[in-house]
Design a protein around this nucleic acid. Structure first.
Length: 211
DNA sequence: TCCCCGATTAACT
DNA sequence: GTTAATCGGGGAG
């Protein structure tokens, strides 16, 4: 990242992810997701929206216990759990907590910083605000799919998370999670207040990619 | 085996 | 605000 010198390029450690999912979700805001494509290109996006999921949580894939699909989610922290949804989209999660515990953080939106042309090509949309503003969009823009399920974000090469710049408390907003039907869902969706790259909210474009 | 529906997105009226 | 697209996970039978 050539831009702001305040953005730390230090890599997050295993212990960063070995904490409760809600803590990690909040702390991931402002961090940098780095994707090294097989052709040598590098894509970077700043995380601006996350959601926490844990084992005793009916909305979590891990709620019904370990299955073939959720195996990674029950494994050690710092690995990527990718799942396929609605027959056409992928969503990526960072595994959290202790090994054997089924908790993770869904990465819902990010602000594109580097590799925009490649993201535009993959998304077939030009507006920067439509590149990574949603879990499915983020995966498509960053080239995340089944092959990336189970990859190591701490010691791996194709995906890393850098320290970037943490978000101060005043700029963090917590809301109920998106798509969780429970009437009183816990405020486990975290976003950067006022950021225009979140998946929903004031000013966020929805619908037509031609916008 | 069958069947329902989802941690979504884009294109409608 | 509403809905089609599209498919696999996992509970029910």
């Amino acid at each position: 990242v050539r831009r702001s010198p305040r953005l730390s390029r230090a890599k997050l450690t295993r212990s960063f992810f070995a904490r409760p999912s809600a803590v990690v979700a909040r702390d991931l805001l402002g961090r940098l997701l780095v994707r090294e494509l097989s052709d040598g290109q590098r894509l970077i996006a700043r995380i601006v929206e996350t959601e926490a999921y844990q084992e005793d949580d009916p909305a979590s894939h891990s709620f019904r216990g370990l299955t073939e699909r959720t195996r990674v989610m029950f494994g050690p922290p710092g690995y990527l759990y990718v799942y396929f949804i609605y027959g056409m989209h992928f969503c990526m999660n960072v595994v959290t907590g202790r090994d054997g515990e089924g908790s993770a953080v869904l990465l819902r939106a990010a602000e594109p910083l580097e590799g925009l042309p490649e993201m535009i090509k993959r998304r077939r949309v030009e507006s920067p605000r439509l590149l990574c503003s949603g879990p499915g969009r983020l995966c498509q823009a960053m080239g995340i799919g089944r092959p990336q399920n189970g990859t190591d974000l701490v010691g791996g090469a194709e995906l890393r998370v850098l320290a970037g710049e943490p978000i101060t408390a005043e700029l963090v907003r917590a809301t109920p999670r998106v798509g969780v039907i429970a009437a009183h869902d816990k405020p486990w969706r975290f976003l950067v207040r006022g950021n225009r790259h979140v998946s929903r909210g004031p000013g966020q474009l929805t619908g037509s990619p031609r916008a």
